[in-house]
Design a protein around this nucleic acid. Structure first.
Lengths: 213, 213
DNA sequence: CCTACCGATCGGTAGG
DNA sequence: CCTACCGATCGGTAGG
């Protein structure tokens, strides 16, 4: 009888909750130790689950890494991409995706800055499925920037001779430099500089009045 | 008698040569495995020296890491900074330091791209002497960019209202984005894009005639 | 999810 | 520079 009651606890839902808790910790650890430096043992200690208990959820380190990239991607989409998608198409989306990234850094959701900035440079020279998953997300994000810029150009919010590919490249560079600088110096003033750099590049005034933070 | 002849072989010079050979391999391995992923064992295998033979040269992993950062810095100075310093002060130096960086990537001196781009993002969240050594070199390079830009502005090669700090930030971003993109896609065409982006930002034409490569 | 293991490798040491 | 170690940790497995 008791065993039947226990079965009603939806062990699969519990399993998913545990798995998500492990992966959230994995993303956080990976921003400090890297995707390769991430170990089953340290993850076990951080979550309070036994080493093979952690391991059982994934079956191999590579599967753990792939799942970690996916969860990091979902968090990035929620924190950086979603706020931009809910804005007016064009320049507003372009500005908001950059500002959301800077706020994402300021809130220090993870101890080691942006997961993907680190993962791209770490996995770039390590061929395999994990690198491909990271590259896929990187391309997705750059393509999103490009589409925002293309729309802004078509709406006349950018010069008609603006080179969208070059603009995208520059904005991605500003984002990377901001992460590198912020992580190294832990100085939030760089985030204000980054905002001004983005606005200068897009020929937009620094509208302090509408700043939320 | 024989022992006295052997003593003339300058064992200290041999030791230094071995040490430099180890460190060159260490920089190369670190661009793939990271400064933290760099291990005495893999370094021993790569150089053909025993593990404790490698270890004896440094005394601790941290000392090995510090020496590796120093050697990486000397190579970067030789390959990227020196060509710029031998140019005419100002805009010419600014263009050349960027172009030298792009050529440095194209030649693929190390398998994992720019050592410092990777090291900054890897060590940023790992406080300690190694992070400080990396941060020191990063600041030195950014300060060099800033000085080149400041001189160019004073010589009237840049607009009189150019914000040198913001320009420096953008150029550093272009350099980082180029490394990230090149390492991920291993596609040299990104280096030509990067050259054009730098020239557009500095309002300089793409003078193909004077291109060496 | 657990305990209890496996062989390999880690940074580091002893002694030469 | 070497061989031969040390305890700790790695990814992974057996068996429950």
């Amino acid at each position: 009888m008791a065993s039947e009651i226990e079965r009603v606890r939806h062990p699969r839902a519990d399993g998913l909750r545990t798995r998500n808790a492990i992966l959230l910790e994995a993303v956080s650890l990976a921003t400090v130790d890297g995707l390769e430096g991430l170990s089953i043992g340290s993850l076990a200690k951080a979550t309070g689950i036994s080493k093979s208990g952690v391991y059982a959820h994934f079956g191999s380190k590579e599967e753990l890494q792939l799942a970690t990239v996916d969860v990091a991607g979902r968090i990035f989409e929620r924190e950086v991409i979603a706020p931009a998608l809910s804005c007016a198409p064009g320049l507003d989306q372009l500005l908001t995706v950059c500002d959301s990234f800077f706020e994402y850094l300021r809130r220090q959701i993870f101890p080691g800055g942006c997961f993907f900035a680190g993962a791209v440079l770490e996995m770039g020279s390590r061929p395999g499925p994990v690198k491909e998953r990271v590259a896929e997300f990187q391309r997705l994000f750059i393509e999103l920037l490009r589409q925002f810029a293309e729309t802004a150009k078509q709406l006349g919010q950018l010069p008609s001779d603006e080179d969208v590919a070059m603009l995208t490249f520059e904005l991605n560079g500003i984002i990377l430099a901001t992460d590198a600088n912020f992580v190294m110096n832990n100085d939030p003033t760089i985030l204000q500089v980054a905002r001004r750099v983005v606005r200068r590049r897009l020929s937009v005034g620094d509208i302090r009045a509408t700043d939320l933070l």
